[in-house]
Each structure stands twice: as structure tokens, then as C-alpha cells.
Nucleic acid binder design. Sequence first.
DNA 1: AGGTTGACCGTCA
DNA 2: GTGACGGCCAACC
Length: 104
Amino acid sequence: MTPDEYVEAVLELVDRIPLGRVMSYGAVADALAERSGRTSARLVGSIMARHGAEVGWHRVVNASGAMPPRIAAEARARWLAEGTPLRQDRVDMRAASWRPGEGV
DNA sequence: AGGTTGACCGTCA
DNA sequence: GTGACGGCCAACC
């Protein structure tokens, strides 16, 4: 799987995350591990930084349910807009975590 | 070619 | 709850 194909796979998966649900960067990496042969949450983060605007980037959060300060305010607004379960200013991962295969 | 830098993560203290 | 460390892999000097 070439780097470009990996980017496509990531965007495709992120695009399938239901409204009000989220996946962590690591969960996205894990979900594609078998098909891609790599497991790098950091790589998924880089891809989202570059191509996130093309998909629902606010539905991919870090393992703590938060987002980096630069985009935290915008992300929070979007979470509120679609009813994502929150806890303080972070996503409630226990309630909002989605895994591919659920709800298909 | 080699070093640094990320929208990261699990472990350990 | 916090902070340090090592692993991760592509992009960019």
C-alpha cells in the first residue's frame, strides 16, 4: 500500500464515522493496520493536518478526547452542533467512541 | 544524508 | 491528575 493509498484509506474511514461519534487517531491507525501494514497514530495526525479539511476532521480526536489548542474552539463548536457526548471541554470517549463495523 | 518536527500513544513514575 | 521517555513514519529543512 503506497503512502497515497494510505491517505485515501484514512480519509475514507474518517468519512464513515457517524455524526455524534468519534475515533481516536490511534483507533484509525489500528483499524487500517492489517490492510496498510503500519500502525502510526502520529502518521494519521499528520494526514489529518494536511487533508482534514476534506472530511469531518473534528470526528478524529486524540486518545484523551481533546484536540490541540489551535483548533480546540472550532472542534468544540462542531461537537456541540452534532450532539457529540462531551465531558467538560473534551469528548466523552466512553460514550462517543465508534468502531468500524458498528452500525453498518 | 542526517536531524528536527509534528492535529499521537502506551507505559511508568 | 501531571510529566518524562521511547516508539512511530512522513514531511521538511
